[in-house]
């Protein structure tokens, strides 16, 4: 569904992505895994069309990314992208006006599930609550593609678990495609269908996670250690 065709992305002299070709399947949860600087965020940004490839192309449903296609993508960036003076409900109203697939009922339900309140002020809440608020706004849309850039980084274990539960809770299997980048491999072992391991802008290993387990008798964490030497960077 999301296709990278010989994609290279250069920032100055650095090659953030180096001739990447791959297909991200429809209706699956795909993990983009790898150390810092391996190209994970760059890949996400190319799918959002916020960045353009230096060479090659990124396609969605076999077409260059169109305005129409972008309407169906929900993107959770790594940075905090909401104005600090906003309350959660202000941020909600902001997002809601942009997207037709906004689901108010889902928003109300998730608000309770994530133990948030629309009147909470973004500058006053904790880091974990901010992470949950970002997730809330991404998952309150009936988007076909959800891109989550490091939704788990720097957050306590309970919040991480809550975030993962949210991903699974209303997941429309076979229909919705979720792409998640993370270092917290252990937490997403049982959540992702496909894994793509990146290193220095190249794909070092990719595959169906259950099949990789059957073939190698390794968990993703151990597979990662094998792929990157001794896993020092994690």
């Amino acid at each position: 569904m999301i296709q990278f065709k010989n994609v290279t992305k250069k920032y100055g002299k650095t090659r953030a992505l180096d001739d990447i070709s791959l297909d991200i399947g429809k209706g699956k949860i795909t993990g983009l895994l790898g150390p810092n600087g391996s190209g994970k965020t760059t890949m996400i940004k190319l799918i959002t069309d916020l960045n353009k490839p230096s060479l090659g192309e990124v396609l969605i449903n076999r077409e260059p990314i169109s305005q129409e296609a972008k309407k169906h993508i929900a993107y959770l960036p790594e940075i905090d992208h909401f104005y600090p003076w906003m309350k959660i409900k202000d941020a909600k109203n902001f997002v809601k006006t942009f997207y037709e697939d906004w689901d108010e009922k889902m928003y109300e339900e998730l608000l309770g599930f994530l133990e948030l309140d629309g009147n909470m002020s973004i500058k006053k809440i904790s880091k974990g609550q901010r992470a949950k608020a970002k997730l809330l706004l991404a998952f309150s849309r009936r988007a076909d593609i959800i891109l989550l850039d490091e939704p788990l980084s720097g957050i306590d274990i309970f919040t991480r678990e809550k975030i993962i539960e949210t991903m699974i809770k209303d997941y429309r299997e076979g229909e919705q495609s979720i792409v998640i980048t993370t270092h917290e491999i252990k937490e997403i072992e049982h959540v992702i269908d496909d894994a793509i391991f990146l290193n220095h802008g190249k794909i070092v290993l990719q595959g169906d996670v259950e099949q990789l387990r059957a073939e190698k008798n390794l968990s993703l964490v151990d597979l990662m250690k094998e792929v990157y030497g001794n896993g020092k960077e994690f």
């Binding site: 209706g27 699956k28 949860i29 678990e161 993962i164 539960e165 699974i168 809770k169 997941y171 299997e173 076979g174 049982h190 959540v191 992702i192 269908d193 259950e210």
Partner: peptide
Amino acid sequence: LAQEIKVNPNTVQR
């Protein structure tokens, strides 16, 4: 079941 054991619904389907 997917919610209870916190596993990807695709895996439960399999």
